[in-house]
Amino acid sequence: MPDQEASGNSPYAVRTYEPARLIEALRKMHLIRRFEEGAEDSYMRGLIHGTMHLSIGQEASAVAACMSLTDDDKITSTHRGHGHCIAKGADLGRMFAEFFGKETGYCRGRGGSMHIADVDKGNLGANGIVGGGIPIAVGAALSAKRLGTGAVTVCFFGDGANNEGAFHEALNMAAVWTLPVIFVCENNKYGMSTSTERSTAVKNIAERAGAYSMPGETVDGNDFSAVCQAIDAAVKRARDGKGPSLIENLTYRWRGHSKSDRNRYRTKEEISDWQAKDPIVRMSRMLKDHGIIDDAGLAKIERDVAQTIEEAIAFAAGSPSPKIDEATRYVYTDEAAA
């Protein structure tokens, strides 16, 4: 994107995107936060079983990474994938319905939180296996290249996945075959309880890019504009046929790994330090500072989002459950094979 002369010192995102898109981005970040809170609340009320992995605190990474994508572009997501799904344009009612195990959910109640997907919008799915989505993203990029669709794939994964063999095999192949894929590592400092310092030999995961001859960049993952800038460059590179990139977004999850986490591996101080770097607060300030939104606008977003969440939960709660005798449906395309 060309720099806009009139706003010399303004951040990349402000220079690059129309105000309306930036406001929409902020709205999505709020949606993610309220969605996660709504899911947590529903979980505690016993409306959701199983577990879930909340991405509160990581909203900027998810939304900024999808800013320059179209519905034809693909993403692969992770077990902490609610934010990616919303960022790529999913309907919150169907997402809640999935969490509630309803037939109207994105996966007809078969997948739940860890497999949330929205194939029509290009989200090939969250994944319960750490690193499981990385080779799949490379496969999607291979399809795009072979079929000449011009689409790119954004592959989300966490810091834990960078030590999986699949990560290394996939990055290598993407580089060898010059595939249009952007590897986005959301480094939230812990693979469950084990810190990156204790698990990973390199200081920054982006350094791994050097092993596969691709650009690697570490950015402040709570800075919406910084993430946009890094990802957009990588997307352009991919669309130009120059191959893959690795972007590392440094961020932090405010909640535990999952609902069973007792937070024994980190301090309250560390958590509150990161809460002070709230990506939504920073994004709001940026938009206000650049006259894109005012307090009334911010309040309206919060009101709208609260209402959207309320309606989405009501839709999910009122939706039918799958039929018990259809428990084995959707295993095979030709259901006679089951």
């Binding site: 080779p135 496969g139 999607a140 192949m173």
Partner: peptide
């Protein structure tokens, strides 16, 4: 020809199959 990367190779095939190949 794939590298000697059975896990990655199989995963690439799966992803490609999901997206049109």
């Amino acid at each position: 020809d794939t590298p000697i990367s059975e896990l990655g190779g199989a995963g690439v095939a799966v992803g490609a199959a999901m997206t049109g190949l």
